[in-house]
Amino acid sequence: MINAVAGVSFIGSGSAQVETTLSNEMLSRVVDTSDEWISTRTGISRRHVANVGESLTTLAAQAAKNAIAATNLTPDDIDLIVLATSTPDDLFGTACQVQAAIGATRAVAFDLTAACSGFVFGVVTAAQFIRTGTYQNVLVIGADLLSRWVDWEDRTTCVLFGDGAGAVVMQACDRDRLLGFEMRSDGTMNGCLNLAYTANAVPLTNGVTTQKGTFTAITMNGREVYRFAVSRVPEVLEKTLFHAGLAANDIDWLILHQANQRILDAVAKRLKLPNERVVSNMAKHGNTSAASIPIALDEWVRTGQIQAGHKIAMSGFGAGLTWGAALLEWGL
């Protein structure tokens, strides 16, 4: 623990995917669809799906280990773990299982649920612990196994989602590299995208009835979610840039939640950003919810495209409905 107000730096990234992939052509054997139908409407060609015996804990832990390995730290140096997920192995929380799996014996750990905005919300949450001097080294993980909750007979949703995990290590420093952020929520639009709990009545004794149920499959109004994203995401990015005193042209990379290529194109057009500065890897991963931004970030870091000092604008948006943006400078 440190005792002075600090800035935030982003010093390492990591990601992990399960082995099994499901291509559009393979999916067309399961539901009435085609590679052409999926790819032209979404930009997705394949997605990773977890098999029986594969867990969110294992996937998140591997991404975390890879992120820590990219730094000069060890798991014992981590003070806090924030796991952004909507598909935990345990509804009481999965972050503590990840903490044990990576050997981060000193770290406190908790889950954060904000669906596809989860990683951005997690980064902003972690930054507050660092800025106030509470913790020095924080691990933020975005991980989801959405294949657990997909209706494989619903071609409007099952073609979209995949499984994966990504992570970053954030550290206290003298100069703050989280340059700005903005977070929003609108619960009146919850019905546009949700994974709802359905209960059945369970009579216990005279006058007392309780409930027992489960969560149903993902449901989505794709048209409304698209409208929401193309209007609200540019707005929240522009506000974030304003807070930082920067313009869109100052961004080296734009990393949006990898939901739909059409959304990425529309947001980039609104911000007047060239396509070569917009990160897109959804073709091979699909929509991995809270994992999509850190997976894309890690891929661009490890291929040398993101360099120290680059300014990265990222925005998550989805169920809740929630949306948010953060502007950061990569590296120490």
Rank of each mutant, 00 (worst) to 15 (best):
M1D: 12
M1Q: 03
I2D: 10
I2R: 13
N3C: 09
V5C: 13
A6E: 08
A6M: 14
V8I: 15
G12I: 00
S13C: 11
E19R: 14
E19Q: 14
T20N: 08
T21C: 14
L22H: 04
S23W: 06
N24D: 01
N24W: 11
M26I: 15
M26Y: 01
L27G: 07
L27Y: 03
S28F: 03
S28I: 07
R29V: 10
V30S: 12
V31F: 02
V31D: 06
D32A: 14
T33I: 02
T33C: 02
T33G: 04
T33Y: 13
D35A: 06
E36T: 08
E36M: 06
W37G: 05
I38M: 01
I38T: 02
S39T: 13
S39N: 09
T40C: 13
R41Y: 10
T42F: 06
T42I: 05
G43Q: 07
I44S: 04
S45V: 05
S45M: 14
R46H: 11
R46V: 00
H48F: 15
H48G: 04
V49A: 07
N51F: 11
N51Q: 15
G53P: 09
G53V: 07
G53Q: 04
E54I: 09
S55Q: 09
T58K: 12
A60S: 12
A60C: 11
A61K: 03
Q62F: 07
Q62K: 13
Q62W: 01
A63D: 08
A64N: 02
A67C: 04
A69W: 01
A70L: 01
T71W: 03
N72I: 00
N72E: 10
N72Q: 10
L73Y: 08
L73A: 03
D76T: 03
D77H: 09
I78C: 04
I81N: 12
V82F: 13
V82A: 04
A84Y: 08
S86A: 07
S86R: 04
S86I: 12
T87C: 07
D89T: 07
D89C: 06
D90V: 11
D90R: 13
L91S: 13
G93C: 07
A95Y: 06
A95V: 11
C96W: 10
Q97S: 15
V98W: 02
V98F: 09
V98N: 01
V98Q: 05
A100T: 14
I102H: 01
I102M: 07
A104M: 00
A104T: 00
T105C: 07
V108W: 05
V108E: 04
A109P: 12
D111V: 11
T113K: 13
A114L: 07
